[in-house]
């Protein structure tokens, strides 16, 4: 963003502790004018909120997504949930979890032409961030599908579901007779993370199952978890689930342990104080 010109630098009181920003992304040391937020900080916040709002409300463009998948050799179907628009989607989570009639007909027609069951169904749902899906879903999908193909698994069409919530994947998977369901969804945008993609994995999907049967990988975005790391984690989950014949809470994620690598000391206390 362009710098806001500060004509009267005497008015704004800056904070000495801006250096502490190295420890946190929190909006600390913003300074004040009187007791209020300086103009620059105010507009930075408004821009971040605008990005998050746009992520929720700008409709997913399915064409570019299909083209990107096609370029990697993956066919896709475009489907919609029972929610007719964003307003209904936001107020009626139940409708976003089920496919509309046209979507069901599309899948049934596909099944008639391709009667053999597939092992893997990958679903992309816009969820609460079209920005996340538009930006990262094609790359994430192809990274995973390429690896699954080399293991010899049969892959169904990629289903792109608009106005879709996580559970809508179960219905797609059930319709396609899939053994493994991978669902990519735009996560609820944070103020500084409008483009976060979530991945939900279910072994033997069926309509009506609960979160307890799903495994989740969250915060996939350039500033969060990388596509490569997310693929590793997902492949680990898939292998384990096929070995154990289940997914969800019964399948504890032991694939990674590296968290909290940046633990810094509490500087508010003298050094002899901390244990």
């Amino acid at each position: 963003m362009n710098e806001i010109k500060k004509a009267d630098s005497d008015t704004v009181i800056e904070n000495r502790w801006a250096s502490l920003r190295r420890y946190t992304d929190a909006r600390i040391a913003q300074g004040r004018t009187g007791v209020s937020l300086p103009t620059e900080a105010l507009l930075a916040f408004q821009m971040d909120h605008a990005s998050a709002r746009d992520a929720v409300h700008i409709a997913l463009q399915t064409e570019p997504l299909m083209t990107a998948l096609q370029a990697e050799g993956y066919r896709s179907l475009v489907l919609q949930s029972r929610a007719n628009d964003r307003s209904e989607y936001l107020q009626r989570p139940d409708l976003g979890r089920r496919l509309n009639e046209l979507a069901l007909a599309t899948l049934q027609a596909y099944r008639q032409q391709h009667p053999e069951p597939v092992q893997v169904s990958l679903v992309i749902a816009d969820g609460l961030s079209s920005m996340a899906v538009q930006s990262h879903a094609a790359a994430m999908a192809t990274a995973v599908l390429n690896r699954l193909e080399t293991r010899g698994l049969s892959i169904g069409p990629v289903s792109i579901v608009t106005q879709g919530r996580v559970a809508v994947g179960d219905e797609v998977g059930e319709q396609l007779g899939a053994q493994l369901l991978i669902l990519l969804v735009g996560e609820r945008p944070g103020l500084s993370s409008p483009d976060s993609l979530g991945i939900y994995y279910t072994y033997q999907p069926e309509v009506g199952l609960t979160d307890a049967r799903r495994n989740c990988i969250s915060n996939v975005r350039p500033a969060g978890m990388s596509i490569a790391a997310a693929s590793d984690k997902l492949l680990w989950l898939i292998d384990e689930s096929m070995r154990l014949g289940c997914s969800g809470v019964a399948l504890k994620d032991q694939s990674v342990s590296a968290t909290g690598v940046n633990n810094h000391k509490n500087f508010l206390l003298p050094s002899d104080h901390s244990a």
Binding site: L20, Y23, A26, G260, N263, H264, N266, F267, L268
Partner: peptide, 17 residues
């Protein structure tokens, strides 16, 4: 003073602020 990984310095920075 919430922090995504409960980093003590990150929490302390928000407390001080």
């Amino acid at each position: 003073p919430n922090h995504p990984i409960d980093d003590p310095a990150g929490v302390a920075a928000s407390i001080l602020d």
